[in-house]
Design a protein around this nucleic acid. Structure first.
Length: 411
DNA sequence: GGCGAAAATGCAGCCACATAGAATT
DNA sequence: TAAATTCTATGTGGCTGCATTTTCG
């Protein structure tokens, strides 16, 4: 309790930035993430008040404490009395909301210091960012929807195809009460979605989707033979032979059991992503960037499945979102029709989507590489705004040819 | 199939500077 | 022994150049 901010090292950290893998106080959160248009896209959420190292995914209204998925399970999964606690999902935000705005979303957080003015307005006044296109986009977006975006939670709750692309500061509903016990709760997967993916209608009645988000699937394709005893030289062969269909039961999906198997397989390999869940469309990035966002791994499964079927060996308490930043997160399989989706009458469309998905998957896999973990968010923040000449840092005041803040060149 | 050229890919190194941590006073 | 000061090593991202691998004729 009371861990200090990674940036200033002074204030108590309250929010967790997945992109930076950093715990920040509210002040530094605003400072760091108002630096430029890219940093403003960083998705943040409250810090787990129990372990103080992982992003909180739920708020236990009974205990009045924000918990990451692991702590949530530890606290609620084993106790029959505690498992009935009502919990709220804690969703991510991006941009640089003011304290009052944060208070409105996280009404349960009482100690957010009040700010006299909009943080964005305040910070932007100090910034030297010129009016580039991104900035204009921000401004226009802010003007267009304004504070209503923050306050109008009810409207956000109703998924809109444009929810992801149009909302710069998307503060999804923080009041999605989870009445289900842990064992069956899909802890932190709001039914938000992005353009390019199937709409909510597809998912709502799909038990498979409720329990398993396959975004991380492709990362494990190389190891399918180990997992399933299926010998495949590579994933191309897997696709060509319809192997993925047989692996995931597309052709003979029989319900929960196969669902569980798939989930276990995925979780077993990408278990490190467990604590890095977040709403798929929690920031203002375009749908495309979200779908290919390596730094925002998405994996959702039930806590019950995780603990009853999974071995967590090899996962240490030191694991953090940064460790899993690029677990090869690919949403490619979700683009278009998912391979395990039962056949429907729109076979031609499905086939096209599938082919597209396969092609995108192959392209993604081709370009995929594991990113390093950022150890010091403060250093990253400085490097992100440092001027360069041919990629090299320059002395302060020297002529530069690249300014990350302005995306312009001085010569 | 073997060969060479071209294209694609991977990766180390460079830069300035704030800062963590060790060493010294 | 603790505090203050000094010194050294480290890490950060974009770009370049070189080495290696792949593709093509």
């Amino acid at each position: 309790m009371g861990y200090i901010c990674d940036f200033c090292g002074d204030q108590r950290s309250m929010v967790y930035c997945r992109s930076d893998a950093a715990c920040l106080c509210l002040s530094c959160d605003r400072n760091v993430h108002s630096a430029n248009a890219l940093s403003r896209r960083h998705s943040r959420t409250l810090l787990c008040e129990r372990c103080n190292s992982q992003p909180a995914s739920v708020r236990c209204t009974e205990e009045k404490v924000s918990l990451c998925q692991n702590c949530d399970w530890m606290g609620h999964g084993n106790s029959t009395s505690a498992s009935s606690h009502k919990r709220q999902t804690i969703n991510c935000y991006s941009g640089c909301p003011s304290a009052s705005e944060l208070s409105s979303i996280w009404s349960f957080v009482l100690d957010i210091p009040s700010a006299g003015e909009s943080a964005c307005e305040q910070e932007m006044g100090l910034m030297s960012i010129s009016e580039n296109s991104a900035e204009k986009a921000w401004a226009s977006s802010e003007n267009a929807s304004g504070s209503a975006r923050v306050n109008d939670m009810a409207s956000i709750d109703k998924p809109s195809p444009w929810a992801c692309s149009s909302s710069v500061l998307e503060l999804n509903s923080a009041a999605q009460v989870l009445d289900q016990p842990v064992g069956s709760a899909n802890v932190a997967l709001p039914k938000s979605f992005c353009p390019g993916t199937k709409g909510p209608g597809l998912y709502e009645d799909d038990d498979l989707y409720q329990d398993l988000n396959m975004d991380e699937m492709d990362l494990n394709l190389e190891n399918y033979d180990e997992l399933f005893g299926v010998t495949l030289n590579n994933s191309e062969e897997l696709f060509e032979n319809g192997g993925i269909d047989s692996l995931f039961g597309t052709k003979n999906m029989s319900g929960a059991d196969s669902n569980c198997q798939g989930a276990v397989a995925v979780e077993g390999l990408s278990v490190g992503v467990v604590n890095a869940m977040q709403p798929a469309c929690s920031n203002g990035a375009s749908a495309d960037s979200i779908m290919s966002n390596k730094t925002e791994p998405i994996l959702c499964f039930t806590a019950k499945q995780a603990h009853s079927n999974l071995s967590f060996s090899g996962v240490t308490g030191e694991s953090s979102a940064g460790d899993h930043q690029d677990c090869g997160a690919s949403s490619m399989l979700l683009m278009g029709e998912p391979p395990w989706c039962p056949p429907c009458q729109e076979n031609s469309i499905q086939s096209t989507n599938r082919n597209d998905a396969v092609m995108r998957y192959m392209e993604k896999k081709k370009t995929r590489k594991f990113e390093k973990r950022v150890r010091y968010a403060s250093r990253k923040a400085r490097a992100d705004v440092r001027k360069r000449v041919k990629g090299r840092f320059i002395k302060a005041g020297d002529a530069y040819d690249y300014d990350p803040l302005n995306q312009t060149r001085s010569c």
